[in-house]
Design a protein around this nucleic acid. Structure first.
Lengths: 372, 372
DNA sequence: CGTTTATAATTTCTTTGTGAAAGTATTAAG
DNA sequence: CTTAATACTTTCACAAAGAAATTATAAACG
């Protein structure tokens, strides 16, 4: 995406429109605290570069000239987002607004680095063969610690250490590549295009094979380390996690923990989805495990609220369906330690598919190519 | 403090020097990412206004012209900081660097608003009578929620609600007055002049009659609500707090909780300091209460680290001496739920007197008169 | 000693970002 | 057709900041 000759302020205007939709110059000026004159000037190069277009004039009730909403040209750009899991590669093609245009899953045959690079490359090729339009950038996200957008320093899921993944991908793919942690990507996507839109600060808590945590303060993603939340202590009298912590998030909420707790109770192997079904059907063991997990989730959300002061907490991840099954338990955990003033955070459950995570990867690419 | 004709950038230079000490123009330019030319320009009005002075030339080994360090003129300005507690008013006179020049405590006779206003006014008058130099501004901090720097919305300690304290003080005092929450003031003071100096983000956790919590992210004090941390859940199997929470921070760490736990155990009223003495002397009841409180403190610090990603946690408040008595318990709480990578926060115990809090109030005045 | 070299600070000039104010374009109401 | 209201543009002025050249100072070196 060629936006080098654009000034930082112009880009800020484009991003405002990207995130908050088509707007007139006057409205943009008000929202961004700039004068109308400045806006005219900032918009001109964006129109010339074809980043923005003027839509048809819009009449507002009352007298006066109609306004000319400005909008980005989403189809002018195409991004690919790729999210790696241990089992599959989820990939999407999106426009500039991170709207998903195409999606694809392929099973992962091997977690060896060259195999994964080849598999990602294959998907990108497939997408590119579907259309004549070029892909502007590819975003890739993985669970685990990513250093400086270049190296997968440590991914317990993939069992990778110090892999210069971005360089390897760039060599293989023809397009620019951007790499980041998966939760960072999802958080960024939620902030710009999702449920966190319009919030200056919010937290994203995801539950699945692992626990994820993203934090936005002052409109900026805080680079929190990924690991510690997974073992956040909920109840020192709770169940044991593989690292030997009593009652930590992993012990309560990691899918393996839930599966094994219910399986042991019933003396047979029971899958995650089945656990939720059983809990819905009031199976006593499944109900207890699920409701305690939901309560742990609520308590952690409450702690996030207390310690960060965010206005919104989004609960998500594949495993968050348990929050729907045991909504009252989440609620209970949330308000258990409430103070008279009550929580200052709104807490919402928003299940997301892996394609949503892939969209997060695309958001990383969009952000990188469109630095605000 | 008359700094209206100074530009925002000039003020930023002054604050850089205020916080990080005397520096040459070249060094300032490097640290602030500005050109040497710009620095010369920004410094001139500060020299003219008498905010800065050039010290004697300093030689650095090697050739070249000597540098002329620039420093603020601390004695040119005088601030008063006032911290209200239920029992006393702690007040200090400071210079621009928040260095304490004079200090004063007076017992509070009545918590009625007009009486407190009169008492604060009396202290300010006493300070002003000590010197011919005028006071530039007075900062006042209180425990409880302060709205927009104007109104004490709710202070359980003083039992005040919706008191327009700033307006009342301004009427009584001749000087500019600034009002804020006490923890916000202490946090700001620590960030600029204390142990948080040089950190982009850190947390301050104070223990005393109540629990306090201040958070700095991206060099900005996050306006977290004061209340929720007081009832942060540490261990759902712990002791009960007055609000009925099991094992919350207040239950473990509020001075009343500790006093009453030990007093009940021994069947007589025992003061806070005596509890610590007894714990040092291995009294079983006091030791248990103190070490559990210390462990709760460590666990909360660990949670702050996990959920905010700060680099530093400062433990303080009158009650933090228990962390010194039971250091190993704090440590235990900190690492209990550690992950392989370990905590990403340094955690330090820094006891502070109430005069330090008064200094925090002065910092509010300094910040308000010196907006960066 | 002067000359060279290195560093600090300043001056001059230019670029860039911004707003104020005046002007143009467009629309509805009288 | 005039007036008023609103959207946008143009012109001008100003402020912030850097680049490059200039001055100031100090050590090293022949």
């Amino acid at each position: 995406m060629d936006c080098s000759p654009l000034s930082a302020s112009s880009k800020a205007v484009a991003i405002e429109i990207l995130v908050h939709g088509a707007q007139s110059r006057t409205r943009l000026a008000n929202r961004m605290g700039l004068s109308a004159a400045t806006l005219t000037r900032l918009v001109r190069p964006l129109l010339e570069a074809g980043v923005l277009v003027e839509s048809d004039a819009v009449r507002t009730p009352g007298r006066g000239r109609s306004s000319l909403p400005l909008d980005v040209v989403p189809d002018r750009y195409r991004f690919i987002g790729v999210k790696l899991t241990t089992e599959s590669i989820y990939a999407v093609v999106t426009d500039l607004r991170a709207k998903i245009l195409e999606r694809e899953v392929v099973a992962i045959r091997s977690l060896r680095v060259p195999d994964v690079v080849a598999a990602v490359s294959a998907i990108v090729d497939v997408f590119q063969s579907h259309s004549d339009l070029p892909v502007d950038a590819v975003g890739v996200t993985v669970g685990g610690q990513v250093e400086a957008g270049e190296i997968v320093a440590d991914s317990p899921f993939l069992n990778w250490h110090a892999v210069p993944f971005r360089a390897l991908l760039r060599e293989e793919l023809g397009t620019p590549v951007h790499l980041d942690n998966d939760v960072v990507g999802l958080t960024q996507a939620q902030h710009w295009f999702g449920y966190g839109k319009g919030y200056e600060n919010f937290a994203l808590l995801t539950v699945g094979a692992g626990i994820g945590y993203g934090l936005v303060v002052n409109n900026t993603v805080v680079p929190t380390l990924v690991s510690p939340i997974s073992h956040y202590p909920v109840d020192p009298a709770g169940p044991l996690c593989p690292l030997g912590h009593r009652g930590c998030m992993t012990a309560y909420l990691a899918s393996d923990s839930i599966i094994s707790a219910v399986s042991v109770g019933h003396g047979r192997l029971i899958g995650y989805d089945e656990v939720l079904e059983m809990a819905k059907a009031d199976d006593p063991i499944a109900s207890r495990v699920v409701s305690e997990a939901a309560r742990a989730l609520g308590r952690t959300a409450s702690a996030i609220s207390s310690l960060t002061g965010v206005e919104l907490i989004i609960l998500s991840g594949e495993g968050v369906h348990l929050a729907e099954v045991a909504q009252s338990s989440v609620e209970q955990g949330l308000i258990e330690y409430d103070v008279p003033r009550g929580p200052n955070s709104e807490c919402v459950v928003r299940p997301m598919t892996f394609f949503e995570w892939a969209r997060g990867a695309a958001a990383i690419a969009i952000q990188a190519e469109f630095p605000g």
